[in-house]
Nucleic acid binder design. Sequence first.
DNA 1: GCGTCATTTCGTCATATGGCAAAATGATAT
DNA 2: ATATCATTTTGCCATATGACGAAATGACGC
Lengths: 138, 138
Amino acid sequence: MLETFETVAKAVADPSRARILKLLEGGELCVCQVTAVLDLSPATVSKHLAALKTAGLLQQRRDGKWIYYRLAERDFNAYARSFLDLVRASLQDDPTATADRRVLARVSAVPVQVLCDQGRAALPADIATGSACCAVAP
Amino acid sequence: MLETFETVAKAVADPSRARILKLLEGGELCVCQVTAVLDLSPATVSKHLAALKTAGLLQQRRDGKWIYYRLAERDFNAYARSFLDLVRASLQDDPTATADRRVLARVSAVPVQVLCDQGRAALPADIATGSACCAVAP
DNA sequence: GCGTCATTTCGTCATATGGCAAAATGATAT
DNA sequence: ATATCATTTTGCCATATGACGAAATGACGC
């Protein structure tokens, strides 16, 4: 039990994975959509999704070539529900989560087919370039 | 905010630290008492307590030579309360937590002064020896 | 002041973790 | 069957983490 608790808590404790959970509160997303928002390599995102699924926080669904992940609807273990509720109640006004939602809006406007092909390049320039890259040199 | 969330979640996600939180639900304990129950080095326990305190989950109080830790009573950040509540509701029947409570009962029966001097040696033989050490050789 | 003693900090080690590129997988469509 | 393509797995690297012993801290009592 402690071991399960640890697995779930550790899954939630990583910032990339917390971002994913917040993203999925808006509904299921396929891997390439999550990848586009987080701006990480597909391999990394896949591993995060697997960790969340192992923790009982997510479930997946295949649709053709794409695999969609969503927040777990049934209790795969004793703690998943509690942690999902906690996350849902947290980070509501977090800047990163807010920015992610904004990017997600653009991502969702692009057909998955195109997104998987082109990644962030398929997004409007203001986002595709990333928001941090415009900062002045150090 | 995400960073604070991460700090608190990571603090909770370690099994030794989760055990400490469960122990402290019974009321404040001094470092050597926690050390005796967890059966880890004082240095390690101290670091865990510091991590929990940094996360806003604990506060401390000095009494003479001893330092007592207890669950945070006021909200040091936006997430501490939620996580403490979650932990309180979890691991209720966890074997490790249960065993820890049992050991704590013996530990509490020993004056802190003696406990700090002798550590686990101050406990009744059945516990001082540890429960796992009686297993057969591999 | 000075030793004592609980606790903390430091230095070190072994292991765990997150990241990516490259290769493997597995379902779809031709 | 085979090529394609989204996703996953593998291998590798750099960093983070938890453990301990030894040294440092800091409050207490003489």
